[in-house]
């Protein structure tokens, strides 16, 4: 059996883990397992590697946008490293990442800690987003009166921040 990473050497390290009932298997050669830090169980490396391999394939299959507009990271880079380029990459590659993240985690929605300072501005952002959607609907329906009202509300929130 060949190594899943370099696809050349004979695999000698076999890893199996069960994540939420889904079996993940990776076969590695000696040098790849050392290089990927699989021998260091104190690191994040093992789980990352197991899931990272699938990750690259998943993104490739989805044929998502090729490059991140913010950091220039590409699908090919992800395939090589199993890591993303910047936080905006999560938007850029969101299509492929969605099913990938769903497969590797317990849920798809973060329910834990939120940065307290950010929580407020997130709330405001969400508010503006809803208002803007209502606004464009009002405009398309030529409902200019409520459109003007919505514009005022948006301005109000933006001034406050």
């Amino acid at each position: 059996m060949n190594c899943d990473v370099c696809k050349q050497n004979q695999a000698t390290v076999f890893l199996t883990q069960i994540v939420d009932g889904k079996m993940q298997k990776v076969n590695l050669c000696e040098s790849c397992s050392r290089e990927k830090g699989v021998t260091d169980p104190t690191g994040f490396a093992l789980a990352d590697l197991l899931l990272g391999l699938g990750a690259a394939q998943e993104i490739e299959r989805s044929g998502a946008t090729q490059k991140c507009g913010v950091c220039g990271f590409s699908q090919a880079d992800f395939k090589k490293t199993g890591r993303l380029g910047c936080s905006h990459c999560y938007e850029t590659f969101s299509e492929g990442l969605q099913s990938l993240i769903k497969g590797m985690h317990k849920g798809i929605l973060h329910v834990g800690k939120k940065p307290s300072r950010l929580a407020k501005s997130l709330e405001r952002e969400a508010q503006i987003k809803t208002l803007k959607r209502d606004l464009s609907k009002a405009v398309s329906e030529e409902n200019y009166e409520s459109a003007a009202e919505l514009r005022d509300q948006i301005k109000q929130i933006e001034v406050e921040t």
């Binding site: 990352d48 993303l84 993240i101 590797m104 985690h105 929605l109 973060h110 834990g112 939120k114």
Partner: peptide
């Protein structure tokens, strides 16, 4: 910090997102 309303804390590897 990089934080996403659905995905939580954003990390270089998708295996660590959320908490």
């Amino acid at each position: 910090f990089a934080f996403h309303s659905q995905l939580g804390y954003l990390t270089a590897c998708p295996t660590n997102v959320g908490t």
